[in-house]
Design a protein around this nucleic acid. Structure first.
Length: 268
DNA sequence: AACCAATGCAACCGCCTGAGG
DNA sequence: TCCTCAGGCGGTTGCATTGGT
């Protein structure tokens, strides 16, 4: 293939003309105005015609990750974090696929979140993020924490209003959630996998009505400082209750890693 | 106040894929 | 069928910021 970088490197003259590094306000403005008048796509052509001394790839990245109007800025909500964790369990490093289920969030942002927050914890625990052990920690420790936080912040006790429902971009799903209000089925302790399974089911059966019923795990039956975790026995049996120190944080940095590592049997 | 290390994130790089000639 | 190219993706890097000493 002939990448932009290759064509650039073929000419030292071009090298001196092309800009790299952080974008300036003027460049942003040029790009926004060009796209406003000519639309997205044809990035190499855009790069040439807009007067930007950037590669087409650079323009595309800047637009998609930063300038596009629907790009959401700021911290990820607990719901979004939870969804990322679950979808990553399912799909691995398919960042763009994961991003499709988080409206306004870019693959780059999700990837950065994973690397800076999630992988950091794996390093502290001295385990591989791809290991079953770490996935156990995510499922049995981190996710319940997020769920608890979500629940605590929900004054009505109803989670995932329509605006917060992870929405795949396909129009059939959009239709299903906009034409009928989402029902929330509170259940006992379980993994959010069921929510994701609903997404899966919908991907395979876009006409299904079941997408309007979200299976939300609910921990109100548990004492605040306790959660029931299903250890990954092959038979999926429920093994024991776990306890964690109660602080109000839900982000991974605030996790009591020692506790987590201890009950999982790692890191100490 | 100054220095240093850690962190977060924007941007880049290289590879892959699919469309079109 | 092969070749070229644009666009997309995941991995990596570089730098500004933050926090600790």
């Amino acid at each position: 293939m002939s990448t932009c970088s290759k064509s650039i490197s073929s000419s030292s003259e071009d090298d001196s003309e092309l800009r790299r590094g952080p974008w300036t306000l003027e460049e942003d403005s040029l790009l926004i105005h060009y796209i406003a008048h000519n639309g997205e796509g044809r990035w190499n052509l855009l790069a040439k015609r807009s007067g930007l001394r950037r590669t087409g790839k650079s323009c595309r990245l800047r637009w998609l990750n930063y300038l596009k109007p629907d790009v959401k800025r700021g911290n990820l909500s607990p719901q979004e974090q939870l969804l990322i964790l679950e979808l990553h369990c399912k799909w691995g490093n398919r960042w763009s696929k994961i991003a499709q289920h988080l409206p306004g969030r870019t693959d780059n942002e999700i990837k950065n979140y994973w690397r800076t927050r999630v992988q950091k914890q794996a390093r502290h625990l001295k385990i591989d993020t791809n290991s079953i052990a770490f996935q156990d920690i995510i499922r049995n420790y981190w996710m319940p924490r997020l769920i608890q936080k979500i629940e605590e912040s929900s004054s009505s006790g109803v989670l995932f209003q329509n605006s917060a429902i992870p929405q795949p971009l396909d129009s059939a799903y959009q239709h299903s959630v906009t034409t009928a209000p989402a029902q929330v089925v509170m259940q006992g302790p379980l993994c959010l996998s069921e929510t994701i399974q609903s997404l899966d089911h919908h991907e395979q059966n876009p006409e299904s009505e079941s997408m309007n019923v979200l299976q939300i795990p609910q921990f109100s039956e548990c004492p605040t400082s306790q959660f029931h975790a299903k250890v990954n026995n092959d038979d999926g049996t429920f093994v024991k209750d776990y306890y964690y120190a109660d602080n109000n944080s839900y982000d991974v940095e605030a996790f009591n890693l020692e506790t987590c590592g201890t009950w999982m049997g790692y890191g100490k």
